[in-house]
Design a protein around this nucleic acid. Structure first.
Lengths: 203, 203
DNA sequence: TTTAAATTTGACCAATTAGTTAAACTATTT
DNA sequence: AAATAGTTTAACTAATTGGTCAAATTTAAA
C-alpha cells in the first residue's frame, strides 16, 4: 500500500461529491480508501477540514479557467468558441463537481472565505471590464448588437454548466434515460452552444 | 393555534429546501413549526415520508408549467417569450426550489418513482415532438435556422434556471454581493433571455 | 355532563456518528 | 541492534438523531 494520505483524499472526493457534506460519512470515506477511520483524523484533523480541502480543490477546478480564457488573445467570437468547448470538456470529465459546489455554496454562502478569493481575483483581473471591452469593440465594428457583459457572461456559463446539473431530468425527459444519447447530446453542445451564443449577438 | 398539520408541512418545506434531506433535522422542523417533535411523526410517519411530500410538491411546481406553455397557441417566438417570462417569475418566488430538486435528484436519481410520472407525462404530451414541429414550421417559413429541439429546449431551461442555482457565485463575481443589483439582473432576464434565444435562431 | 376519540407532549430508546486514545506495528535513524 | 519517530488499528466515548410510547390535554360525540 502506498500513500494513504492521497488515497484518503481521493476517497473523500468521491464520497463528498456524490453525497454532499451532510450525506457523507467518515466511515464510508475510510472504507472507500480501504483504511481505518482513525487514519482520516490522523491526516486531516476533522470532517470539516477534510471537506474544506476537497471543496477548495473542486472550486478551483471550476473557476480559474474562466479568467484564463478571457485574458487570452483573439476576437470575441473566437474566445467564446474556445471557452465553451474547453469548459464543457472539463466538466465532462468531472460532471458532478458543479452540482457539488453549487449545493454547498447555496447551503451557506457565508462561511466560505474562498468565495472572497475568487471574487477579489475576478475583480483584480477585471473580468467583467475585459468582457465589456470586447463587446464594445465588436459593437463599434457593427459586428454584434449591444448586450450587457453580465447577461452575456451568465448566458455562456448557464448554457455550459446547466445540462450537467440537470442531467437526471434531461436524460429522462429528452432521451428516455438513455445514457449514450445524453452523452452525444453533451458532445454536440461543445460546438452547438458557441454557435447559439454567437448567432444570438451577431448582426 | 390552527392546523398544525399544515404548519408542519410549511416548516418542513423551509428546512428541507434550505438544508436538503441530509442536512435537515426533525427537531429543527418541529421548532420551526412551533410544536413537539413527536407530532411530526403523528402526522407524517417518518422523515422519509415527510420529505417525499415536500419533494413531490416542489417537483410538481417546477415542471408542469413547461408542458402547459408548449401546448398553448401562438408562434414559436411568442411561446418562447411567454415561457421565459412566466418561468423566471415562478422561480423568482421560490428561488431555492430548483437547487433543492436538482440536488436531491442527483444524489439518487433511481429511488424516485415520481420522475417516471414526469417523464411519461412529457412523452404523452409529446413535448419534444411539438417543439420539433414548431421549429419545423418556422424553418419552412424561412424565419429561423434549423436547430434540434433537444438543444433548444435545454438552452431555454438552462438560461432560465441556472442564474438562480448559481446565485451565490454570480452575485459575488458580477455584482459585488449586492442583492439589489442581482435582483435587477434577474428582473431584466425576463425579457433579455427571450430576446437572446430568438435572436439566436432567427434568420 | 360523561364518554370516547383525536391531538399534543415529555421522557425515553436504540442506532449512528465524529472524534479520541492508547496500544501495536513499521520504517528510519543512530 | 536499539532507540526513535511515524503510521495504523481496535476499542471506546460523548453527542446527536430519528423514532416510540404512555400519559396528559383538548375536542367532539352521546
Amino acid at each position: 500500500m502506498i500513500d494513504n494520505e492521497q488515497k484518503i483524499l481521493e476517497a473523500a472526493r468521491k464520497v463528498f461529491i456524490q453525497k454532499g457534506f451532510d450525506g457523507a460519512r467518515m466511515q464510508e470515506i475510510a472504507d472507500e480508501a480501504g483504511i481505518n477511520k482513525s487514519l482520516l483524523h490522523y491526516y486531516y484533523r476533522s470532517k470539516d477540514k477534510l471537506f474544506e480541502v476537497v471543496f477548495i480543490d473542486a472550486f478551483k477546478g471550476l473557476f480559474p479557467i474562466i479568467e484564463k480564457v478571457f485574458t487570452k488573445e483573439g476576437t470575441l467570437f473566437e474566445r467564446i468558441e474556445q471557452f465553451v468547448k474547453a469548459y464543457i470538456s472539463i466538466i465532462q470529465n468531472n460532471p458532478y463537481i458543479p452540482m457539488f459546489v453549487l449545493h454547498e455554496l447555496n447551503k451557506n454562502a457565508d462561511k466560505l472565505p474562498l468565495l472572497f478569493n475568487a471574487i477579489t481575483k475576478a475583480k483584480e483581473n477585471n473580468l467583467l471590464g475585459k468582457l465589456s471591452m470586447l463587446i464594445e469593440i465588436e459593437v463599434q465594428k457593427g459586428t454584434i448588437r449591444p448586450i450587457k457583459a453580465e447577461q452575456l457572461f451568465a448566458n455562456i456559463v448557464s448554457l455550459s454548466i446547466f445540462p450537467f446539473v440537470s442531467k437526471p431530468i434531461l436524460k429522462g425527459i429528452l432521451f428516455d434515460n438513455n445514457e449514450d444519447t445524453y452523452n452525444q447530446f453533451i458532445e454536440n453542445r461543445k460546438t452547438e452552444v458557441a454557435e447559439f451564443i454567437i448567432n444570438s449577438i451577431k448582426k
